[in-house]
């Protein structure tokens, strides 16, 4: 624990706050993930972890590494950037896949407006559906 003792108090407080905020938001997102009833509702819960859950931990880690090494360390931002870009892509694709599966099985969970393809969507999907 020697590197942690060398951190000044004015920096230790924001680092502790950011890390605890990030961890708590991630837990809240995970609990919502367990409790929400529908897949399309559940799709929103992990975004808590990928936005400020990840952001808090990464910012805390960045501040700590910068203080310990004695120079500005920005490596952590690479992770933050990668997650910020990839998480929406994954969730969007998963949502489309679930919609596709629910439609092809005629699921009753879907609202009426989503049960059938709109004409604009049919044109865009017809070449890729073979």
């Amino acid at each position: 624990m020697t590197p942690l003792a060398a951190i000044p108090l004015w920096l230790a407080l924001p680092i502790a706050f950011l890390v605890m905020l990030g961890a708590t938001l991630t837990l809240i997102g995970a609990i919502g993930f367990l409790r929400l009833g529908n897949f399309y509702d559940r799709l929103h819960a992990p975004t808590l972890a990928t936005s400020w859950g990840m952001g808090g931990v990464v910012l805390g880690s960045l501040l700590l590494a910068t203080q310990v090494e004695g120079r500005v360390i920005l490596h952590e931002l690479v992770i933050a950037f990668a997650i910020l870009i990839t998480a929406p892509v994954t969730l969007m694709l998963l949502g489309r896949a679930a919609l596709h599966r629910d439609r092809s099985e005629g699921s009753t969970q879907l609202p009426d407006a989503l049960r059938h393809r709109r004409s604009s969507e049919t044109a865009e999907n017809s070449e890729s559906d073979e």
């Binding site: 003792a5 951190i7 108090l9 230790a12 407080l13 706050f17 605890m20 700590l64």
Partner: peptide, 9 residues
Amino acid sequence: MSAAILTFA
């Protein structure tokens, strides 16, 4: 002090 805070967090 700061070590205790960080260890706890």
